[in-house]
Design a binder for these strands. Sequence first.
RNA 1: GCGCGAGUAGCUCAGCUGGAUAGAGCGUCGGCCUCCGGAGCCGAAGGUCGUGGGUUCGAAUCCCGCCUCGCGCACCA
Length: 565
Amino acid sequence: MTPDELLRAELTRVAIAIGAPDSVAPVLERPRDPAHGDWATNLAMTLAKPLGRKPREIAEALVAKLDLAAAGVAATEIAGPGFINFRLDSGANARGLANILALGATFGRTDVGKGAPVNVEFVSANPTGPLHVGHGRQAALGDAISALLEGAGYRVTREFYYNDAGVQIENLAKSLWVRVAQAAGIEVQIPEGGYNGEYIRELAERFLSESGAPPSSALLAGAEAIAAGSAPADAALFDTMRRFAVAALRAEQDLDLRAFGVAFNVYYLESSLYTDGRVEETVDMLRKGGHTFEEEGALWLRTTDFGDDKDRVMRKRDGTFTYFVPDVAYHVTKWQRGFTRAINVQGADHHGTTARVRAGLQALEVGVPKGYPEYVLHQMVTVVRGGEEVKISKRAGSYVTVRDLIDEVGRDAVRYFFLMRKGDSQLVFDVDLARSQSEENPVYYIQMAHARLSGIFRVGEIDPATIIADGVQWDALAEDAERELVKSLLDYPRLVAGAADALEPHRVAAYLLETARQVHLWYHKHHVLGEPEHILRARLVLAKAARQVLANGLALLGINAPERM
RNA sequence: GCGCGAGUAGCUCAGCUGGAUAGAGCGUCGGCCUCCGGAGCCGAAGGUCGUGGGUUCGAAUCCCGCCUCGCGCACCA
């Protein structure tokens, strides 16, 4: 039990003793001002109404009955409108360090998830080009959220949904066709909605060298068809190109993800929803449910019955389905595969789809909960280099890829920068800052704190494994800098639990930066090696505990914790 | 026009799901230091939390209106 858990238990007992309901759950918080003690509770204020007594009076009654020794409290104080402040007895906080050493890499883990299966879907890029910075933010977010949920006791499946069917893929295949035709000397332009990127030209070259040059008559006919807005007549050749392009770009994206250190458990192909009949099946079910209607030659779903702001087309006039249908079919599989929670990490530019996917799932009436799936939406990323924004132009096909960033600043920095802001705010990625080897760079600063702590053991030729908490004089950790550091370290589990609950990894990033700051402060002010034995031992425990917490937090974010830099 | 998000110190951002005198880094100003590991340490100035109402013991946080910016509003994903 950590000191605050002990105190909470004692408060609960006393509250019930003075007449509070058995369900009472005292909330302890860290006072902003350290002068107010180690912990504070507003319990007396929340009990004022149910007990019909004044807050300060209740506070006094509570304090009078409190078993200070059992709760590890040295002093209490009633303040303001009815806060009770607690100062733990000397060393009570520090004793919590033993807990950190005992739990090691599992310090900060909880079991609120109770092994429930959660599906976290992220990146899910169309295989129509390399991963760009937006995907990078998503990869970092999705992976960190997954790690947070695992730490909270959920069984997490990381899933990538490939939109390898539909109009975008059609455009991709046409773009490749055009580049191949151009290589054969045919004059034709990339069609409206096509892909202009240089990578398509490279793809065309690879296609030619691997598959050989197609007959130019077929290429010309196809190019004319594309220019006229339709598909090439040579369906077999067109299909070959489509497959080639999708396979090649998927392989590229896999390399990007590997470079970023992100691994998925499941790659789900949109095309499989068509081949195994789930799309048709979904449409049938929706029709039977009576929520569809036909208008202007299209088949619609009345999503407005389920909270969407307008009805949606399911089957277009040309007989093909909109992306929305496979999307719904796909999410049904998540539910059917047993995921009681499904979390989708997406760019905020997709927020329009959330209401209709949920509406579609409700319309199916197969027992999917209303808020399913959950969405974590993130705002845009802008890249700044040399103090200027790097312009991203989709039309010209020029943008900053994830791989560019990783090559330039390293995986750890990319991860941290994508995670240091909350998803709701727009993110500025300062390339120069990310690559700088100075303490202004937050990643460097945090990793440096870990390396410094490691350095103490290395320089002192002490094996950290031999450092144990037994017999340590806890009140030897009496300096302000170390008392504050100890408090921060013990706060870690609460912090992580909150971050997991809110699906907000940036809290961990901010915590690590603050804790690293305290480590540096302590390190500069106080020596470890060469101190008297009892201080040396206590500080080695602190150093080991701090190193552990930094390492645990960095691991959640997918960032290395180096021993030396 | 409608929906979602943002607006907090000169700049970049936190603010633990409603708590006490709103915090950190950078920058500015003043003073030290050169020490296990590389400009570090101490202090200061700097705020009508976009704005106007409301809810209550108590609001940056919750509700309503307005302003500014971003994103979306396809039979594209």
